[in-house]
């Protein structure tokens, strides 16, 4: 048994198994090829399942993977063989809900890529080197989006979608307070 719960990786893939954002915390997959092979295997083995209402779980190659899908996005959290499944599921739920808050429930691949900076910050706030940093979605989303408005100097430069994103952030922030 690990001395503390640890996460081996978090994957956010699209509906074809391509990367949107991934983060590896363990050396179990030392090369890029090994990482891609793992992602492919995870994706194909879970593809046909219905993980849209409740988080699903699978075990293969000595790993536990919990996952949840929405629109064209597939969320995965991987842990070791002996890990407490419920802890992994809590991390997954935290990530999933935080992304929902950040993207203002408009969760699909396109919006996710448009806000990739926020998604990456969000990952950074959930896990640090495999150790769980925070699992509460509102806190994660709050840490990701807050204070980032100060830099919005000139509104004139913003495109419509950026303006919308700004508005969204304002809203999220007011909701969270």
């Amino acid at each position: 048994m690990e001395p503390y719960p640890s996460v081996k990786n978090i994957l956010l893939l699209d509906s074809e198994g391509k990367r949107v954002a991934v983060k590896y915390y363990a050396d179990d997959w030392p090369t890029q090829a090994a990482k891609l092979a793992f992602e492919k295997s995870v994706f194909t083995k879970t593809q046909k399942t219905n993980a849209r209402t409740e988080a699903e779980i699978a075990m293969f190659d000595g790993y536990i993977v919990v996952y949840k899908f929405i629109q064209d996005l597939h969320f995965f959290v991987t842990g070791g063989d002996n890990e407490n499944e419920l802890i992994l599921a809590t991390v997954l739920q935290g990530f999933f809900d935080a992304v929902g808050l950040i993207l203002r429930n408009n969760v699909d691949k396109r919006t996710a890529l448009e806000n990739l900076d926020l998604i990456l910050l969000c990952l950074d706030e959930i896990i640090d080197g495999g150790i769980i940093l925070e699992t509460e979605a509102s806190v994660i989303a709050g840490k990701t989006t807050s204070d980032s408005l100060d830099g919005m100097s000139s509104l004139s430069e913003q495109t419509i979608s950026q303006a919308l994103a700004t508005a969204r952030e304002h809203l999220a922030r007011s909701l969270l307070k």
Partner: peptide, 21 residues
């Protein structure tokens, strides 16, 4: 230009995330 710089960093991170070295 903070916004521009943020965008460029995001692009760099995107490349790294896609496996670019």
């Amino acid at each position: 230009d903070a916004r521009r710089c943020s965008q460029v960093i995001t692009k760099l991170l995107y490349l790294l995330n896609q496996g670019e070295t």
